[in-house]
Amino acid sequence: METRKVRILFLVFYVLSLLVWIIEEIYTLSKPPEYFDRFRVLIATIESFIALSSFLVVFILYKELKKEAVENRQAKTQIHDLKRTNRILINPEKGFWAEAKAQMTDWNLTDVETEIAILLLRGFSQKQIAAVRKKSLRTIENQTASIYEKSSMRGKLEFISFFLTPLLPEED
């Protein structure tokens, strides 16, 4: 709240500076040149301050727009998460897997990666997945690394948490 007061004070000062500048310009045009020569240093200082103030105002507005964009992006993410939670809770059995598969499609996982991701969600280890799929452990490690990269997750716990968090009740 304090920064808002500072911004308002600065904007008031800026508007007053513009008014002084306009009055000075009118005065300069209406008086003979010798009056202007006496005050040219003062006038140049005022004009320089107004110019610098303009840059500062533009910078402040730019920072505000960036902050609003971040808040907007966070709000959209939260809305998306709440909608996903609602779709899951409408029909928990089918809703969970439908949402999980839809999310995997959004992440552009291949069919093989989707199958492995489902096994990860079911709690299988990489060794168990390798045995079930009859592939080498190294292949499964590479595929799970690809899944985590595409989903922007850092590991199995974060990956599973992403899908289970919407099912948890709100904290008191």
Rank of each mutant, 00 (worst) to 15 (best):
V112C: 07
L89Y: 07
K150H: 09
L119P: 05
E149L: 02
D81Y: 04
L120N: 00
E47Y: 14
E115G: 04
I116M: 02
I26R: 05
F162D: 07
K156W: 07
K67P: 05
E99H: 02
T114D: 11
K67I: 15
E47S: 12
I22M: 05
L168R: 07
Y14W: 06
R7T: 14
I118F: 02
E34A: 03
E170Y: 02
F49A: 14
L121S: 01
D111S: 13
A100R: 03
T139V: 13
K127R: 12
F59Y: 14
Y62W: 10
I147R: 01
F39G: 13
E170W: 07
I90T: 11
R38H: 12
F159S: 00
E47R: 13
K5E: 14
Q78C: 06
F162Y: 14
K156E: 01
R133I: 02
L82D: 06
A145P: 00
V58S: 10
L157P: 03
E68D: 08
L89I: 08
V12C: 03
R38V: 10
T110Q: 02
F49E: 10
L52Y: 15
R40S: 00
D37I: 11
T85K: 15
Q128I: 08
T165G: 00
L42I: 13
G95H: 06
K101Y: 06
I88W: 09
D172H: 11
Y14A: 12
K135T: 06
E24G: 15
E170F: 09
V12W: 07
E115M: 00
V12R: 11
F162T: 04
A145T: 08
L65I: 05
L109H: 05
L109E: 04
R40N: 03
S125W: 09
K67A: 15
A51V: 13
K135P: 01
D111H: 09
I160G: 08
W97I: 02
Q78N: 14
Y14H: 12
G95T: 10
I160A: 09
I23R: 11
E71W: 06
N86W: 14
P32V: 03
P33H: 13
T144D: 09
R133W: 02
L109W: 05
T45P: 10
K135C: 02
D106A: 12
S17K: 03
L42G: 15
L82A: 09
L61E: 12
W21N: 14
Y148K: 01
F163P: 10
L167I: 11
S30A: 09
K31L: 01
R138S: 08
A44R: 14
I22A: 08
V6H: 09
L167S: 13
I50F: 15
S151P: 02
L16C: 14
V70W: 06
P33C: 09
E93D: 15
E141T: 10
